[in-house]
């Protein structure tokens, strides 16, 4: 007689099986790709053909449509990584490891793009590519943290062990980012008391808000698609590593 040893699985536990996760989320991929593409086409059309210039900033306001979504993603991706880090540490959820690893390079690129567009926006607006103001400086620090995390992932041989260690560091970073932001704000107002241009300062008319929202969702969905795809790849990479180890040991006896 065999007792019922099969544990009852809810969706959360079933997601813990990497194969199941890939099988379940693969059908989502193409609809998300199409949605992202449509949003981008719409966003570019709004940005270049159907939005007025700002009375204050002129046409440079159009840089905002790519700058603000990237700046948002730079923080959103870190939030995703922090939640995944909690998933790794508290529930030891295997997909949380994979999500953390897949998100780090994406976050680094979006942060770099936020800095790049910010610099190109700063040149006509402030007259300089780089200003040590609170926002740009803390974004730069965030980029350094992302790059540190990417480097950390690459430095570990054993990815399963790496996940828990990196989760600890990710959460330490998450606690520190508000402190860094606060200290950098304090520091920059100290050194240049003159008020700098703030993107969210003046109230924006609908004609600017609509393209901004479309681009915001386009970039967010782009991240979701790429994150999902990178997670699938990471699942396969782990399978590759397991197989390689097994083959190197000459196969099971």
């Amino acid at each position: 007689m065999t007792p019922d040893t099969e544990p009852r699985l809810n969706w959360w536990n079933r997601m813990a099986n990497p194969g199941q996760f890939v099988a379940w989320t693969t059908p989502l991929l193409w609809p998300l790709v199409i949605l992202t593409a449509v949003l981008f086409v719409l966003g570019f059309w709004f940005a270049f053909f159907n939005s007025p210039e700002d009375y204050q900033m002129g046409d440079t306001v159009r840089i905002m449509y790519v700058h603000v979504p990237n700046a948002w993603l730079s923080q959103f991706v870190y939030a995703i990584m922090s939640v995944s880090a909690l998933g790794t540490l508290v529930w030891r959820h295997p997909m949380a490891d994979v999500s953390m690893k897949a998100a780090a390079p994406l976050g680094a690129l979006f942060t770099a793009l936020a800095l790049f567009t910010g610099a190109l926006w700063g040149r006509p607006t402030w007259g300089t590519f780089w200003e040590w103001d609170g926002r740009m400086t803390s974004t730069l620090v965030l980029l350094l943290i992302y790059l540190g995390l990417v480097a950390l992932w690459r430095a570990f041989d054993d990815q399963l062990r790496a996940a828990r260690v990196i989760a600890v560091f990710t959460l330490v970073g998450a606690i520190n980012i508000p402190i860094i932001k606060f200290s950098v704000d304090w520091w920059s107002t100290l050194h240049q008391p003159a008020s700098v241009f703030r993107p969210d300062g003046p109230r924006m008319p609908m004609s600017i808000l609509v393209p901004l929202f479309v681009m915001f969702f386009a970039f967010t969905f782009l991240f979701l698609v790429l994150h999902l795809k990178a997670m699938h790849t990471e699942v396969k990479r782990r399978r590759v590593m397991t197989l390689k180890r097994r083959l190197a040991q000459g196969g099971p006896a």
């Binding site: 620090v141 480097a151 950390l152 260690v165 860094i180 200290s183």
Partner: peptide, 23 residues
Amino acid sequence: AVTVSIRRGGLIAPILIAPLSIP
């Protein structure tokens, strides 16, 4: 502590510590 099990950890630790030390 994060880099202790990495063989070349001494190289990567400063990269991790420096951003945290900015404040």
